[in-house]
Amino acid sequence: MSLKIDDNTKVIVQGITGKEGGFHALRCIEYGTNIVAGVTPGRGGQMFNDTIKVYDSMKEATHETGANTSLIFVPAPFAPDAILESIYSGIKTVICITEGIPVNEMIKIYKIANDLGVTLIGPNCPGLINPAQKCKIGIMPGDIFMPGRIGVVSRSGTLTYEAVDQLTKSGIGQSLCVGIGGDPIVGTTFINVLDYFIQDEETDGIVFIGEIGGTKEQEAAEYLKSINNTKPIAALIVGASAPEGKRMGHAGAVISGDSGKAESKMFALKEAGCEIVIHPGQIAETLKKII
């Protein structure tokens, strides 16, 4: 699992001829991302933005361009196939923005990506961005980011932007920001990203943003404890004001008991040495106290 972005990062946009894919591909290019090709089955031979060649298949596109990363905007019913096509074309990092992929499809895809050693980020995520490398593989507004030494990991899109905006306005830049996605099954978990940040020499501190439901935050806390982490982490959990049972399935709470609640997540992260952000408006302030 590598989240490293460098000069060799070459990106193919799957679904580049669609409205969303096209819009965000342009924003990525403007930001500085090296987008080398687009793929839309049936549209091979077209040019996107007069500069990017569109291919019919991932196999063809990777073969022609040597790309190692793909960014997916394909509509949900066809996105599972797009992810698989990407994986089997030899791509090593797949970022899937698409929202609304059936969970049963993601269970299969997760297993395949995992078995083949492919880093899958998302689905239903904003992607990732490395401001120093001027590389954005996702849908975040590039102008709020600033190069620096803080890693940001979050389950949410706009809340990531909120956190980054606070950091940048406080003069704190970011090394890498990763939105892991809001679905029950996602390719890259908090643990994977934390592991990367903790080993990354470019990252001095971490902003961790979780939310109610599931147990991913507690698993992250267990991981931090197990490695005796010493990098400072400011952690925000949102959803303390959300009523029980409205978002979470009834039986989802069976195994975990009260663990889906914000307070038990905060408790676990605090136990693991994180500084808890008590108000969503104080993400940067909280981090400042510990770095």
Binding site: R155, L159, V238, A242
Partner: peptide, 22 residues
């Protein structure tokens, strides 16, 4: 009225921490 689920929850938390309810 918020864009994004995470920010929507954060906004609800802000309302609650001000002593009001969403």
């Amino acid at each position: 009225i918020v864009n994004g689920a995470g920010l929507a929850m954060a906004t609800m938390d802000v309302i609650q921490s001000a002593g009001l309810s969403p």
